[in-house]
Amino acid sequence: MKEYKVIVPLNDTWILKQLNVGDRLLLSGEIYVFRDQVHKKIHNGELPDTLKINFHNSAVYYCAATPPKNNFVIGSCGPTSAYRMDEYTETVLSIGFRIMIGKGYRSSKVVELCKKFAAIYAITYGGCGALLNKYVKNYELVAFSDLGPEAMYKFYVSDFPSIVAIDTNGNKIWTVET
């Protein structure tokens, strides 16, 4: 088990191929944040073309944070269950995303897609939204503001922690059938 500090968006996807299941991944830079409804909108072609170019070699974090309070820039911001995005994952990878962060197991189809796109899925600390707050330095709204907490945001993160759960070779951290 190794630890990798990675800057996102990636300049070079070479680093992703070095990651193995179980490795610790610390992300710094900009990550896009969206979940169920935005996935559906992207899948249905409702994403403005002007935005798509930004997603090249980017990370997506499945999260809907609580509002900022008490001088914190954002509220609690832990991951949501990733399996609900499985159906839309091919679309999201095809527009440039290469790192997915969430919690829980994914379908065997997503494992195959990670291999096909040389992408990875990493699990972060589910149910620890107050703890994860400290890794998010700032955030901004990107699109679909009408969706409220589950709109598309961008988080500016520093050493945001996760554990590689599917690597680019199609290995996965779980042993059960999914």
């Binding site: 944070a65 609580t66 008490n70 609690s76 911001c77 939204g129 703890l131």
Partner: peptide, 18 residues
Amino acid sequence: ILNNAEISSITKLPLCQD
């Protein structure tokens, strides 16, 4: 999980965003 509970009780950031 323990660490998160401690942070939440001190900062009053909710235990979970959900």
